[in-house]
Design a protein around this nucleic acid. Sequence first.
RNA 1: GCCCCUGUAGUUAAAUGGAUAGAACGAAGGUUUCCUAAACCUUUGAUCCGGGUUCGAUUCCCGGCGGGGGUACCA
Length: 608
Amino acid sequence: MASIESKITKAVIEGVEALYGQTVPEKMVQLQETRAEFEGNLTLVVFPFLKISRQKPEDTAQQIGEYLVRNVPDVISRFSVVKGFLNLVISPALWIEMLQDICKEEKFGFQPVTEDSPLVMIEYSSPNTNKPLHLGHVRNNLLGWALANVMEANGNKVVKTNIVNDRGIHICKSMLAWLKYGNGETPESSGKKGDHLIGDYYVSFDKHYREEVKELAAKYMAEGMEEEAATEKAKQEAPLIKEAHEMLVKWEQNDPEVRALWRKMNEWVYAGFDETYKALGVSFDKIYYESNTYLEGKEKVEEGLEKGFFYRREDNSVWADLTAEGLDEKLLLRSDGTSVYMTQDIGTAKLRFQDFPIDKMIYVVGNEQNYHFQVLSILLDKLGFKWGKDLVHFSYGMVELPNGKMKSREGTVVDADDLIETMVNDAKEMSADKMKKLDGLTEEEACEIARIVGMGALKYFILKVDARKNMLFNPEESIDFNGNTGPFIQYTYARIRSILRRAAAEGITIPDTLPTDAELSDKEISLIQHMDGFTAAVRQAGTDYNPSCIANYCYELVKEYNQFYHDFSVLKEEDIKKKIVRLALSEAVSKIIKNGLGLLGIEVPERM
RNA sequence: GCCCCUGUAGUUAAAUGGAUAGAACGAAGGUUUCCUAAACCUUUGAUCCGGGUUCGAUUCCCGGCGGGGGUACCA
């Protein structure tokens, strides 16, 4: 409708000028879909013009309507006025034309990427290497992947990147526990996925550490300390944590043994992550490791110090004073010279800037980091990164469970691998009895469909929610395959494909030129009109950085098609023109579903 | 304390400042000689409170109340 809407917008602007002698900005022309209870396809809201026309809403609408029918009769065949709303009936031939465009265009609604397109880098996932991925990571990965697709569909060159937090005290904890309690266990010997193996040792460390703290605190209390102070001291003095710190120091000093173990264990974790990423269907163009970037960050901070952006305190720690920007002072280097989170992000930025001519940087990170990115933006800008000031923190909400927040220590995390397996298995069970109707499917094909549907359910469940909002993940509801769910949309796709296969078998294909004089029912027009909304949904997802509107759009479209599907027969229609139009409609809907879900990283099955 | 985000049916969640707030799940009922019933239809039920701007406010502004997050040597 881009074309229809812009035609009308132009005509309205001309009309207002001819009638009332004033040019109005395009923004004032508000066109919306006509509500089902009134006749018409598009509705112009005339309230904004009242000040110019100096007449009653009804009269203004009537005058504009008459002007349009007179001047663009090929676009608008007739109109009606309800209060301040001018309902326009669009000429049927235009709808057919639009339908044809949708069918022809392979990537309907997308903008082409050219050499001159801006380069957008998207960072997402960003795991720690001491534990497997959980539900929170799943939301991050799905959003990051979808956002990358959306940016590309809006005509940007996209580089997907991951920063792996592969160093620090937490990794040392896993390493230490493995040395102490591991008996040389490996992924091969235990049959565990590498990331789960390491995660288990992280948990094991925590368990032993807490025991030590408890004992030590009891000892301090026996010596007369208050409970709180005793616990605090015990946390710092426990032998295990001291050992872990020693290990971290050795790591920083490049101790060969520690480094070798670190490398070995990280490799196990990466192998595990790769499996999970593959199952989620996400990938990266470039992976950065914090062990390579944290030193760069220190250098960059020193540089900023020399230039006078930052200052050093008496205890040797380095700070940025952001009070002028209305923020606090922020630590950049600890008094012992070691780096913090912010330092590492600055170093990573430096490397990225060296590697790519980045025009825009998007960080997909949870909303608990809002303040961090506000500060990072200012710091990068000060340090001379041209994209620093406008960096986008794609800030998504937490995932909560019915019984509260996820906490790894309390064992209330939902593991990503478990979740994926459960979803796919449920899809398999679900389809087992439905599959009877699909003869000739091999076991392998049935499994593939179950995988597509199970993952579709999971992805859609997460992506349909506004990214900024915290969401509740109810494991039972997420497996639902009815209602506003991925499988519901996939099912419609499969049915349409089935219709098209049958039509092809009957020797009916959609011609390059659709019959422009075919009759269209209101439902068919409304469906074509909705299809065009896809373009707007893709644009909006790109400007708002919010994939959820695409998910909701697809659902609306499918719902509408399903009603159509039940009211009309596509294949049994005798009027060949109508039949072709309905086939074209079905084809167009299936194409949009495929493109739309594709943006979300959801596959569509040819049959299910 | 200060800063940021958020508040819509029992639940999960839509709505560039536009018409009677649109769905899904749940609950109750109905539809299949018909292109895939994983479908469709009917019934049930909601904008936290108080002001303001506007022809018009779920949306924007101010003040309460509720929920979440951050808050300087954790990442």
